[in-house]
C-alpha cells in the first residue's frame, strides 16, 4: 500500500537546511492498522504529508498504491486513495452543512450527483452521524466534528486513511468515538489505517507500531514488542501503559512475572496466576 525507499525530506529557510526525515524505509501492507508514535517534532506529521503527495520527497522515493508520489499527473489518484484526517476538526471542515462537507471530496473528483448522494449517506451511516446530515458543524461536539471529517474522507472511497493525532483535541468520550470508528473502518471495511498519536492506549490497539525519533524510524514491531521495551520507550520521551509499568517494576523487585503485558486483562490474569502460585508455595 505504502512503500518508502530511503525517503528523505528537508526544507530550506534563510540558507539553513533542516533535515526533517532521514532515510525512511517502511512498507505498510494492505489492511494493516499501523500506529505511529514519537515526540512532537519527530517528523511524524511530515511523514504523513509525504504519503499523499502534499509534500514531495527531497530524496528517495515514496510509492503509494504502486504510484510514485512524485508523478504529478497521478496526484489525484494518490490523494483519493490515501485520505487524511487532521488534529483540529474545525480547520478541515469546509462547508456550513454536514452533508455538503461530506460531499466535498466526491464533488472535487467529479462524481455524478446521484452517486455523491449515495456515498454521503453511506459515509454518514458508517460514522453514525446520519441524523446530523443537515446540522451546522459549529453546533457539534469535537468528537462529532472529527467523525464528519472521517466521513468526508470515506466518501472518496479511499483504500487507506492516515489520521494525524485525530484525538489530541478531544475529551475521553470523543476519543472513544473516534477510536471505535477507526477500528471499525479497519476491521469491517478493510481500510488500511495509519494512526499518528500520543496516546499509548490507542497505539496498543494497532497491529503494528512504528516509533519515530529525530526524523528516523527507531522501533517497528507489534504493540507487545514495542511498548514493553520500557527503557527505550522512556528514553524516546514516550510512555508505556500503566500495566506495563507495573509489571516492569514488579520484575525489578525480583518477582518472576511476565513483563510483556500491555492491557488490563492480561495484567489481571498474570497477577492472579502469581498470587495463586504464591499461595500454593
Amino acid at each position: 500500500m505504502i512503500k518508502t525507499e530511503e525517503l528523505k525530506f528537508s526544507y530550506k529557510s534563510e540558507d539553513k537546511v533542516t533535515d526533517v526525515l532521514n532515510d525512511i524505509n517502511i512498507n505498510i501492507i494492505e489492511g494493516e492498522f499501523v500506529a505511529v508514535l514519537g515526540r512532537n517534532g519527530s517528523g511524524k506529521s511530515t511523514f504523513a504529508k509525504l504519503m499523499n503527495a502534499i509534500l514531495l520527497p527531497t530524496g528517495g522515493k515514496a510509492y503509494v498504491c504502486g504510484i510514485d508520489s512524485a508523478d504529478e499527473d497521478k496526484i489525484y489518484d494518490i490523494r483519493k486513495n490515501i485520505g487524511m484526517v487532521f488534529q483540529n476538526p474545525d480547520n478541515q471542515l469546509v462547508a456550513t452543512i454536514v452533508e455538503e462537507d461530506v460531499a466535498f471530496g466526491p464533488e472535487n473528483l467529479g462524481v455524478e450527483p446521484s452517486e455523491i448522494r449515495k456515498r454521503v449517506d453511506w459515509a454518514l451511516d458508517v460514522v453514525g452521524m446520519r441524523e446530523f446530515a443537515e446540522a451546522a458543524p459549529h453546533h457539534l461536539s469535537g468528537g462529532q466534528k472529527q467523525r464528519i471529517a472521517i466521513a468526508g474522507i470515506l466518501a472518496m472511497k479511499p483504500q487507506c486513511i492516515v489520521l494525524d493525532e485525530p484525538t489530541a483535541m478531544l475529551d475521553p468520550s470523543g476519543r472513544r468515538e473516534i477510536i471505535n470508528t477507526v477500528k471499525q473502518l479497519n476491521r469491517e471495511l478493510g481500510i488500511t489505517i495509519v494512526l499518528i498519536t500520543h496516546y499509548m492506549d490507542e497505539a496498543a490497539l494497532a497491529d503494528r507500531i512504528i516509533v519515530m525519533s529525530g526524523g528516523s524510524v527507531c522501533l517497528d514491531g507489534t504493540p507487545k514488542d514495542v511498548l514493553t521495551q520500557r527503557e527505550r520507550i522512556k528514553s524516546l520521551g514516550l510512555d508505556t501503559p500503566q500495566v506495563t509499568e507495573l509489571m516492569y517494576n514488579l520484575k525489578a523487585c525480583g518477582f518472576d512475572v511476565n513483563d510483556k503485558i500491555i492491557n488490563v486483562e492480561e495484567c489481571v490474569n498474570e497477577l492472579l496466576r502469581l498470587i495463586k502460585k504464591e499461595k500454593n508455595d
Binding site: N52, F86, E99, E100, F104, N108, P113, I153
Partner: peptide, 27 residues
C-alpha cells in the same frame, strides 16, 4: 493564518483543484 494554512492542506487532501470538473451534490 494558521487556520487558513491547515484548511488549504485539508482541501488539497480532498482533491480540491478549483472549479474545473467539479460536480455538485445538490443540483
Amino acid at each position: 493564518f494558521r487556520r487558513a494554512d491547515e484548511l488549504a492542506v485539508a482541501m488539497e487532501c480532498r482533491c480540491y483543484h478549483g472549479g474545473e470538473g467539479r460536480t455538485r451534490l445538490k443540483q
